[in-house]
Simulated assay, not measured.
Amino acid sequence: MILIFEGMNDLLDEIKTKYREDTFKMLKEIEFTYYNQSEMKTINDFIVAYSSSNFTSIRFDWNNKHSKDFIDANAEYRSKVSIYYILHCDDNTNPLLLKDLFCEQSKHDEEAWGASGFLFMLGEKLLSATGSQYIYEFLESAMRSFDTYGCCSSIRLDDKLVNELGLGIEELIEISSGNRVAIKLLNDGLEYINNFLS
């Protein structure tokens, strides 16, 4: 029975690797049709200069409708900024922007009843850049829906970072006594993060 389970883990790892590779390849392929030259410079400037005062241009701006009536006024721009960041920016270029992109995209994905293929790449960059600084926001966003949870299972983290994140979550659990919602999220999050151990 253990051999079958280990074989399943290997198969799941292969599937996740293929998914990551295919997603990155797709983003690279659409890059030259998704952006025009001047737009890429404008987006790069936005990323470098981003602060909380620019939040309104990437926030989840939803019309409170679903299915064919669903509108998020900032979806296209936020996607363009996200994809550009993934393809062209170091993790540490602008951690605040990474956090805001990840959180707002997860809100979009929850209400759009799906998950953007690049969501896990934003999450991975966020955790790599900030460690446990935004771990609560990460968990809240990654665990927002079944789809966001599933997409974020493709994140890859080294054991050192997983251990750092686990310690950060444990510290938050200690200071969150009395807040049952936060404690539940953090306990579930600790289990979720520990699944990334190799």
Rank of each mutant, 00 (worst) to 15 (best):
A115R: 07
P95G: 09
E111V: 15
E31M: 14
Y84L: 09
F120G: 13
S67F: 13
V48Y: 04
Y85M: 05
I30S: 02
Y34K: 07
S106N: 12
L12V: 03
E111R: 15
F118M: 07
F55E: 07
R78V: 08
D45G: 11
A73C: 03
G114T: 09
E104L: 07
Y50L: 06
D109P: 13
H88R: 11
S106E: 06
K65H: 12
A112W: 00
T17V: 04
R78N: 02
T17E: 09
K16T: 01
L122P: 06
S106D: 07
G117Y: 05
L27Y: 07
I86W: 05
F55N: 08
D90A: 15
K16D: 01
A73W: 02
M121T: 08
A75F: 12
M40V: 02
Y34W: 06
N36L: 03
D45E: 06
K25G: 10
D100Y: 04
Y84D: 01
A49Y: 12
E110K: 15
S38C: 05
L127H: 08
L126C: 07
F118Q: 11
K65Y: 08
N92M: 06
E21G: 00
I83C: 08
T23V: 15
T93Q: 01
I47D: 04
S82V: 06
E39S: 04
